[in-house]
């Protein structure tokens, strides 16, 4: 079988798997999509955090960049793992105790100001937006290879899938 056929098969199987899981866990959580409160085991949450963390950038680009940069590529390796030490020691336990849902919530309450909440919100949007832009480029590159189209067409396809 050709690479293209295999790609359709394997990508198809994994997508069906995700949809099934999403459907099954959707049925369980009737109280709404955003509810975070408590039921996820540390192990499952650790796995999900890892998937969340390993982005298109780290999957596709990082080894390539290290390959061209040599030692200097360590910035990505150290930076994207060492930050978890800061997160685990300085932020995660306390924000969990605080218990509200978003970062602007913490900033708004801790600094007793709607303006602070707004600034935090603006920062959150700028940061997440920059991050999403990089991801969509990554999806575009994968599509461009596996459907044998131009990268830009791949980006447009990626946008459609992400929105769906």
């Amino acid at each position: 079988m050709s690479i293209l056929t295999w790609t359709y098969i394997i990508v198809g199987i994994t997508f069906i798997l995700y949809l099934c899981i999403a459907w099954v866990s959707m049925v369980k959580t009737t109280s709404g999509f955003y509810v975070a409160g408590g039921g996820v085991s540390p192990l499952a949450n650790g796995l999900a955090t890892a998937a969340d963390w390993i982005s298109a950038a780290s999957f596709i680009s990082m080894a390539g960049l290290i390959s061209f940069m040599g030692y200097a590529g360590s910035i990505y390796l150290l930076g994207w793992t060492g930050g978890y030490v800061l997160l685990a020691l300085l932020l995660a336990p306390y924000l969990r105790k605080f218990g509200k849902f978003t970062v602007p919530d913490f900033v708004g309450d801790r600094y007793y100001s709607d303006f602070a909440r707004f600034v935090a919100l603006l920062c959150a949007i700028i940061v997440s937006f920059t991050y999403v832009a990089g991801q969509i480029r990554g999806v575009g590159i994968i599509f461009s290879r596996f459907l044998e189209v131009d990268v830009n067409t791949g980006v447009l396809l990626g946008m459609a899938i992400v929105f769906f």
Binding site: Y71, S74, L77, L78, T81, G82, Y84, V85, A88, L89
Partner: peptide
Amino acid sequence: GFWFAQQGAIYVFVILIFVY
């Protein structure tokens, strides 16, 4: 030095969080 930058440091980070 290269090994610490690309391997060793990461192992130490994992150990640190579990010690914590």
